[in-house]
Amino acid sequence: MSKKVKKAVLPVAGFGTRFLPATKSSSKEMLPLVDKPLIHYAVEDAIEAGVEQIIFVTGRGKRAIEDYFDISFELEYHLKYQGKEDLIEELRKISDMADFVYIRQKEPKGLGHAVLRAKDVVGDEPFAVILADDVIEAQKSGTAQLVEVYNRYHCSVIGLEVVKPEDVSNYGIVAGKEVEKNLFRLETFVEKPKKEEAPGNTAIIGRYIFTPAIFDELQKTAVGRGGEIQLTDAIASLSKKEVIYGKVLEGNRFDCGSKMGFLKATVEFALKDKQINGEFKNYLHEVIGC
């Protein structure tokens, strides 16, 4: 019987240079999307899929993430003194979401290297990889959609999105044979190709399910584009030994690693927030006049 996906790796060691100077002393993953940081949405994505252990691969200056998912006795004492027991209960839910593990990535050697750092904790189990930059708004979380495919085929599954042809150079691009609607058996993997060299415009986005065999491929993967160990290169290598599927995810993805994507997500999530959506709509009407 195949093991269930109970662990998720969240690489969070990046510098967040596109948001400097805001990220000079604060983690990009802690940028607030309305009233929760980006990393909170990523953890929720994993929990909905049945994940029980979250493995953060962190770096220098990421202490805020650890503090966020820890218990803050000082803050709780202050809130209790003010009679805000409901807020204490809400904060406790954060630290109780999952079992949290932290691993340090001492040097920025790429996404593939970050995933490899989790090898000893993951062990011989299938696991998810979630990139907090990608916030997916859907009836079923992006990771949950991939877990459904994994439970049927017991193979690695990659989250996909069809992007504009002019944007392919920003993504790992794949191609393969469609076996079900929006589900592909992947055959070709190219990391950030030029538009004229891309095998299509179906892109890898920040949700993955891997068998533990990916670690062997990562250990053998040479340094690639940008002087980093590219996860896409290891996936391509693994595909020669195991079947890998790609699932076009349902829902709306917001690339919160870019300023425009982050702003779009902020507007969309604010408009859906029951506490502020009415006032926010009125404000937008005043500003843009429609």
Rank of each mutant, 00 (worst) to 15 (best):
A118T: 03
Y283P: 00
A118H: 11
S95H: 09
K192I: 10
Y81M: 07
S72E: 12
K272G: 13
H285I: 15
S141F: 02
P108G: 10
L183S: 07
I214H: 02
K281Q: 12
H78W: 11
L79S: 03
D99C: 07
K36H: 15
E166L: 03
Y171G: 08
M1L: 02
A198M: 01
F269D: 00
K62T: 11
N277L: 05
I94H: 10
E196M: 05
T266M: 13
N252A: 12
D45V: 04
K80Y: 12
K240V: 00
E197D: 15
E74F: 02
A265K: 06
I94T: 15
E178S: 05
H285F: 14
V157H: 02
G142R: 02
V174W: 05
V248K: 14
H285C: 13
G112A: 08
P37A: 02
R117I: 06
V9E: 08
K259C: 12
V174R: 07
E125V: 05
E107G: 01
E286F: 14
E178K: 09
Q139F: 06
A64T: 11
T211V: 10
A222H: 15
L186C: 08
L20W: 09
I94Y: 10
I158C: 02
G123M: 06
V121Y: 14
I55R: 07
A98V: 01
S169H: 10
Y41Q: 01
